[in-house]
Design a binder for these strands. Sequence first.
DNA 1: TCTGGGGTCCTAGGACCC
DNA 2: TCTGGGGTCCTAGGACCC
Length: 420
Amino acid sequence: MYALADCNNFFASCERVFRPELNGKPVVVLSNNDGCAVARSNEAKALGIKMGDPYFKIRDIVERNHVAVFSSNFSLYGDMSRRVQEVLHLFAPSVEPYSIDEAFLDLNGMDVDFDAYAKQISRTCRRLTAIPVSVGIAPTKTLAKIASKLCKQYPKLEGGCYLNRPQDLEKVLKIFPVEDVWGIGRRSVKKLETLGIKTAWDYTQLPETAVRKLFMLPGFRTWNELKGIPCIEFEDLIEPKQTICVSRSFAHELKTLPELAEQVANFAEMAVSKLRKQGSLALEMAVFAMTNRFKEDAPQTTGGVYVTLPEATAEHKTLILASADACRKLFRPGFAYKKAGVVITKLVQARDYTPSLFQDAEASDRDARLSGAIDRIHASFGPGAILFGAQGDGIIRMAREHQSPHYTTLWEDIPGVVVK
DNA sequence: TCTGGGGTCCTAGGACCC
DNA sequence: TCTGGGGTCCTAGGACCC
């Protein structure tokens, strides 16, 4: 038996924790550069604001309805996420964090009233973190997802729902749209439409051979999961990432190589930080850049350059220099670059790597000490406290007109209470 | 004027091996 | 004229997730 705990409208809910007067009011949270709506409270959804809507297109709705707008504040969301996960650990020996706002709980072997347990988990999260959480419990992860969605739809479930009895499953799956099933994406929905498949139940009634042929292994797993046969394993061990990517859109387009190269160097530095945190080394890196695809009349280009590193490394200097090199190869004059990024495409765990016999040990020791010093400076004074010359003045500041304070992660932003 | 960022898994097909 | 059978590894691209 698995539980899925899913935070409702997570980023919007985080903002409300410290602005309780916004409860019951429409709230949206924007992506980087205040570009798109990436989280909406139920009230904002009811106004017709969709996930991913560009801000400039919904500005009218926002102003007419006094929607509270926030720029993204990931240090707040990350910290709130950690708190919710901590609460979840009170209810199950193993918890699998699935995304910033979701986690699976392994309830196998537990002998409890699962419906009451689901509601209790939700209630406790709410009380200890002030975040509303929907908890679905079912014999497979896919069904647990469906159960948690039901909680959001039906307030009378009090945030928790147990889905296992065959007659309940049939009733629920017969009204559950197939496009809302975890693992069924847009492309599959198109195929399903031509077959006349509308609900999750319809999907389970397809013959096995058809499912395997049309939707391959992933679709076959989903098909089984919907029928209560677990095919997606519980993974509570946090594996090191297989790729690391840092990319950004720029508030203003960049037209010169030095400007672009500086930003790419900054992305490389951020990627190295992530790399070092998980104890990996990079074997290969890619740099990419592209123009603004929405400007149809402007000349368009998009490209990437791979760099194979002579030695696996997690040193700032090597990777930043390599990124600048790649950027020079990539850059084409006459284009206005809107977005760029650095991807570390091949990683190896440091403990699994044997350096080349012919490596310059002295130089690599020097670089390692430099990187260690940079890490310590960042830890004490914050990221960006020290930069390589290649990074220019650091990353271009993003548009963030509506950012809330870092309530839980910065001393000067901690909320105060006035006692009269 | 203004349009996000970061991941995983699977498959087909090519290159190569004996 | 006739031209086998079985395997691995790698990569690009597709599909999906939040």
